[in-house]
């Protein structure tokens, strides 16, 4: 075998995945890009309109609002989710039976599908029939209209999402904690470092990669938040919880505006891409500094 052949061998390993990836993901993505330049619906011909769909999007206040909502809900979810997951991992990183049970408890909601999650939370959040409403009323207060007040729906979606998705990041942090060499703690103990100091100087820096991974995955996931908004509030009241993907879905499936929906999808894709790449470059820099391979 020549070294040239050997050089190409690696490609054979990645080829099966790459071929499918190109066919089923990249080709549809490019086709979407092409469609975004057309005025076209699901069944018909289509007229080339250049960037007209994008111009229309820029002037569409509903799309603008959906982007703002998406950013807001992502900002509400990601930092809180990360902190909660980290706190749970720190508290549950021990070999006791009770910790094992609690780990199971905090992971349990992650096995539910979004249809079920929203069904359950509807029966918690609705002011007239929900669990929270009953509690509030029992305390002699007027229940908060979580699903119908414009300034409460996004927090309601965030709450639902955090409950639903805290399990995976917690497991990631647990795994990260177990990777920290015991001798680092022993060294800290020898230095008579306080618990806080140990946490800030040893634990947290060691979890840097994990934290970046969690934030990166969660940001990408939450910018695509859809089911909660569609099923829990249908984007209401008055669009206050309409997310970008819900906008996309309504445009494509409700109005059959394939071209316009494709343009919205491209914008969303670019935004997520920009955010993900920024985060990836941050991790890249960290890696370059650390392992120098």
């Amino acid at each position: 075998m020549t070294s040239a052949e050997r050089r190409w061998q690696g490609l054979l390993f990645v080829a099966p995945f790459l071929l499918l990836y190109l066919l089923i993901l990249i080709y549809p993505l490019l086709r979407g890009l092409w469609l975004s330049l057309y005025q076209v619906d699901l069944f018909g011909g289509g007229t080339f309109v250049g960037l007209a769909n994008y111009a229309r999007l820029a002037a569409d206040p509903v799309f603008g609002q959906s982007l703002i909502n998406t950013f807001l809900v992502t900002l509400m979810i990601v930092p809180l989710l990360t902190v909660v997951a980290l706190a749970l991992a720190l508290a549950l990183n021990r070999a006791t039976r009770s910790a094992a049970i609690l780990r199971g408890v905090f992971f349990s909601s992650a096995v539910l599908s979004v249809t079920i999650v929203t069904l359950i939370w509807r029966f918690i959040l609705a002011p007239d029939a929900g669990l929270l409403g009953e509690l509030w009323t029992a305390l002699g207060r007027e229940p908060l209209p979580f699903l119908s007040a414009p300034n409460l729906v996004l927090p309601a979606l965030a709450m639902t999402t955090i409950w639903w998705s805290v399990g995976f990041p917690m497991l990631l942090f647990l795994a990260g904690l177990q990777q920290i060499p015991q001798d680092m703690y022993e060294a800290a103990a020898l230095d008579r470092a306080s618990k806080w100091t140990t946490f800030w100087r040893v634990t947290l820096p060691s979890l840097r990669r994990t934290t970046i991974l969690v934030v990166m995955l969660q940001t990408a996931a939450q910018l695509q938040i859809f089911g909660q908004s569609q099923l829990l509030t249908a984007g209401g009241p008055s669009g206050a919880s309409r997310t970008a993907v819900l906008f996309l879905f309504e445009t494509a499936f409700g109005r059959w505006e394939l071209g316009y929906a494709s343009a919205a999808a491209e914008i969303l894709f670019l935004i997520i891409l920009a955010v993900t790449l920024t985060q990836y470059m941050l991790t890249g820099r960290v890696r370059a500094g650390e392992d120098g391979r």
């Binding site: 050089r7 190409w8 061998q9 690696g10 490609l11 990645v14 995945f17 790459l18 990836y21 066919l23 089923i24 993901l25 990249i26 080709y27 549809p28 993505l29 086709r31 979407g32 469609l35 699901l42 995955l217 990408a220 910018l223 695509q224 859809f226 993907v245 996309l248 879905f249 494509a252 394939l258 929906a261 494709s262 999808a265 491209e266 969303l268 894709f269 997520i272 891409l273 955010v275 993900t276 790449l277 990836y280």
Partner: peptide, 30 residues
């Protein structure tokens, strides 16, 4: 190590940013 390894890996990472709703219609047509 093989030619275009880094570019291909970045191409794969790109996928993390693609909202599945964005490609579902062309996928369906395909």
């Amino acid at each position: 190590d093989f030619p275009f390894r880094r570019s291909l890996f970045v191409l794969v990472l790109l996928g993390l940013a693609i909202p599945s709703q964005a490609v579902i219609l062309p996928q369906h047509q395909l």
